[in-house]
Design a protein around this nucleic acid. Structure first.
Lengths: 369, 369
DNA sequence: TTGTAGGCGTTATCAT
DNA sequence: ATGATAACGCCTACAA
């Protein structure tokens, strides 16, 4: 090129609110762009004097580096993405928070997206976050379109699966055993003497966590000599009102269950609320259990017996695993976390006898019947 | 290293999981990169035949455009950022969801970040999202570091303020009048006969929404001939347990309040829970009110009397406003949304008489005892 | 310690 | 309808 852009470029369009660039800073500080770049990325490679000069220019111009350009040139974004099923309720909030906090410690930023429990939406989000330069991804559970796994593998994109730890799965993950956790609770329920069992679950079709929990219940029944087919099952999306509806439908049957297990706390609280509306006493008339132990479980009345999941620890471990993967210091390895049952007030033997070691929470205020 | 990068460049490092680029697709489809780009962005500018050819190549290679490069070249990212105080509880979830949905409609993606109610963190997030190429920003409330406003103005970054509509503020916003809303509730409370008023508020120092709500209470007291100084005020971060603690402390005083207003539903539920623990009946022994009307307000027992905020509508309007700003079809204009009191079961006249027009919550469905 | 210059993956302007 | 080819803003060998 001879002298084509003589008058063009910067000078020409300075008026349309040009954002300061590295070059502007360099010019203003009387150094090269390389030096400015160094000041920002490896401050120790440049002498004190020039550094201050440059930083002043940065301040003065209100310069902020362009992320896209940076990622483009450095082939690294210090960003990871998390794709969770939903932000609407608190199920993933605590774990994600811990994930984020640990990430901060390592200087990496978190981008979150939600799939609304739709596999196709998740696939889109995976591509979106990848194109956005995510260095790694946090995924929830094992179930997803195979094209997603193919995509991930082809791009050699580091990822960790959380909220599930399935001994039978080939993919590494950090989480807990949904099957075992639910089976333990179901077994405790059966040992209390319940025989008519209801289960309100999330749709199991594309959700391995929900499916494994369901299998846990069935397995417990089998072990105790009950017919797994006798389980009264309703699958419905996670929400308060769907939980309430499912519960109502379960309790309208001729032979009502004496206990309704719920796939998570949100469903359980919905069920609890519905029981209240129907004038059913919990746990005297019917027991209800949840899963997750989110904050609301302790806030409702009566307080909810549920499976406690170590969300914070899980988030932290997931972050550690992902960062290790990204820095190639590590290979995919699973970490299994434990869960435990939190005995509170919504579970009792059929007929209402309280289980041993009962809650300290004051009952009452439940309305007058 | 002697002859290390002899073989370098594309060919040399094809093994390290090279991501397909526009050029790869172009080559594979036997067209130019420009054509591929067109296929993706303005499909109608290219003939059917080539288009299919190209799209096949895209599929085959698993190509996804690089966001950074695209934003760099197009100077537009079709992305907006939202910086909310916290993701931990549900206060912002519903509004954000609606915001996101409306954005989708316009083909723009949402990036969310949280400030943990820390002004400095918010300032950082503003820079981060800006550098990330956000075309616009959603901000919560008016209070923030002046440097943030300066930054925004200098970059001519479009933004909309939500969750607050302050008639006295020079900045445009879409939201509701926190002062008026809280004053209305407080007035109703006073008219019920309460004279000993407690208020659990979020820290008002850097939170105009909380501050305006507080002022609303004081103004109501003044109007009704009470000394605003007599208000028993506790400021504490938004959380269940802080709400519980604040309530306990309020009720330990000699002359306990007959009603405790809370700055939001989370605090209120914490307070409710604490009342329960202390063996205080609500509303007979003490009334409690919330603010926001998030889902949990209807789920707790007794259900919470609170101020309903049209979160979804606010989110939608905010999205509309922001998109308009970005496309320069619009100038900043405020939109004020209304709120209304949801009368439920935690508020009654001092002593416990229920207010007129009581809750319709406990209709009994089909149940025999 | 600092500067030079090539390249990162796309878009968009011109030609053709 | 399609193809060349400059930007876009930054990083990073490599030189000086």
């Amino acid at each position: 090129m001879t002298k084509p852009n003589h008058q063009s470029g910067r000078a020409g369009r300075v008026r349309e609110s040009a954002l300061p660039t590295l070059e502007d800073v360099a010019r203003s500080a009387g150094v090269s762009t390389a030096t400015v770049s160094r000041c920002l990325n490896s401050p120790d490679l440049v002498v004190e004097q020039t550094r201050t000069k440059v930083l002043e220019a940065v301040q003065a111009l209100g310069y902020a580096p362009n992320f896209g350009a940076r990622a483009l040139a450095a082939k690294r974004s210090n960003t990871v993405g998390a794709i969770i099923p939903t932000m609407e309720n608190a199920i993933f909030a605590r774990g994600l928070q811990a994930f984020q906090e640990e990430l901060d410690t390592h200087g990496v930023t978190l981008l979150v997206a939600s799939s609304s429990y739709r596999p196709a939406a998740e696939a889109t989000q995976v591509r979106t976050l990848t194109a956005r330069g995510a260095d790694g991804l946090l995924l929830i559970g094992h179930d997803r379109l195979t094209e997603v796994y193919e995509f991930l593998d082809r791009r050699a994109m580091p990822y960790v699966i959380a909220w599930a730890h399935d001994p039978g799965s080939p993919r590494a993950s950090v989480g807990f055993d949904n099957f075992a956790a639910m089976k333990e609770l179901a077994t405790a329920v059966l040992d209390l003497g319940h025989t008519r069992i209801g289960l309100i679950s999330a749709p199991t079709e594309t959700n391995d966590r929900a499916r494994r929990r369901l299998e846990g219940v069935r397995s417990a029944m089998l072990d105790r000599g009950l017919d797994p087919q006798a389980l009264r099952l309703i699958e419905t999306p996670y929400a308060y009102d769907t939980g309430a509806r499912a519960f109502a439908s379960l309790m309208q049957a001729d032979d009502r269950p004496s206990v309704v297990l719920c796939g998570n706390d949100v469903l359980a609280v919905g069920a609890l609320r519905q029981a209240h509306k129907m004038g059913l006493r919990v746990p005297q008339d019917v027991s209800i259990t949840g899963f997750d132990d989110i904050e609301i479980a302790q806030v409702v009345t009566p307080s909810l017996t549920t499976v406690h999941v170590p969300h914070r620890e899980m988030g932290r471990q997931a972050a550690l695993a992902l960062v290790g993967l990204i820095n190639a210091e590590t290979t995919p390895t699973s970490v299994a976390l434990g869960t435990d049952i939190r005995w509170r007030d919504t579970l009792a033997a059929p007929g209402g006898a309280a289980p041993a070691g009962e809650s300290q929470d004051k009952e009452t205020l439940n309305v007058r019947h």
